[in-house]
Amino acid sequence: SFNTVDEWLEAIKMGQYKESFANAGFTSFDVVSQMMMEDILRVGVTLAGHQKKILNSIQVMRAQMN
């Protein structure tokens, strides 16, 4: 498990989005775990492969939080 959203993004090789997530207010796992595709688009993730990777990881995160 990760301590910060930045660490999580690095771990899934999506570190290039750290600033975008932070600027959009997605700075805690409570918020990130609620993200939908529209949120991912809003933070500027436009590549389908990256969207899928982030969404898949969020689903895993949700499962671990319950």
Rank of each mutant, 00 (worst) to 15 (best):
S1M: 14
S1D: 13
S1R: 13
S1Q: 15
F2E: 05
F2W: 15
F2Y: 12
F2L: 10
N3T: 12
N3L: 11
T4V: 05
T4L: 05
T4G: 08
T4S: 12
V5S: 02
V5E: 00
E7F: 05
E7G: 08
E7V: 05
E7Q: 10
W8C: 02
W8G: 00
W8K: 00
W8N: 00
L9A: 01
L9H: 01
L9T: 00
E10Q: 07
E10W: 04
E10T: 09
E10C: 06
A11S: 15
A11V: 11
I12L: 15
I12Q: 05
K13A: 15
K13R: 10
K13P: 01
M14Y: 03
M14K: 02
M14I: 03
M14H: 02
G15A: 12
G15N: 06
G15T: 07
G15I: 05
G15Q: 08
Q16T: 07
Q16I: 12
Q16E: 10
Q16D: 07
K18H: 04
K18V: 07
K18L: 05
E19Y: 08
E19G: 09
E19N: 11
E19T: 13
E19R: 09
S20E: 09
S20H: 14
S20K: 13
F21M: 04
F21T: 01
F21V: 02
A22K: 14
A22R: 15
A22E: 09
A22H: 13
A22T: 09
A22I: 09
N23F: 09
N23K: 13
N23H: 12
N23C: 07
N23M: 14
A24L: 10
A24D: 04
A24Y: 11
G25V: 02
G25T: 02
G25C: 05
G25Y: 04
F26E: 01
F26C: 06
T27Q: 08
S28V: 04
F29A: 03
F29Q: 03
F29Y: 04
D30E: 14
D30M: 11
V31C: 08
V32D: 01
V32S: 01
V32Y: 01
S33M: 13
Q34M: 11
Q34Y: 07
Q34L: 11
M35W: 03
M35N: 00
M35V: 03
M36Y: 09
E38D: 11
D39L: 03
D39F: 02
D39G: 02
I40P: 00
L41Y: 10
L41R: 13
R42S: 13
R42T: 11
R42A: 14
R42H: 12
R42E: 09
R42W: 07
V43P: 00
G44L: 02
G44K: 03
G44Q: 03
G44Y: 02
V45T: 02
V45K: 01
V45Q: 01
V45C: 04
T46K: 10
L47Y: 10
L47T: 14
L47I: 15
L47A: 12
L47S: 13
L47R: 11
A48C: 08
A48F: 08
G49K: 12
G49R: 11
G49T: 14
H50M: 03
H50Y: 03
H50G: 02
Q51P: 03
K52Q: 15
K52V: 12
K52G: 07
K53G: 05
K53E: 13
K53R: 13
L55M: 14
L55Q: 06
N56T: 13
N56G: 10
N56S: 14
S57T: 04
S57M: 11
S57K: 06
S57A: 15
I58D: 00
I58G: 00
Q59H: 11
Q59N: 12
V60Q: 14
V60A: 15
V60S: 12
M61F: 06
M61P: 01
M61N: 04
M61V: 05
M61H: 04
M61K: 02
R62Q: 09
R62C: 07
Q64H: 12
Q64A: 12
M65N: 07
M65W: 06
N66V: 13
N66T: 12
N66S: 12
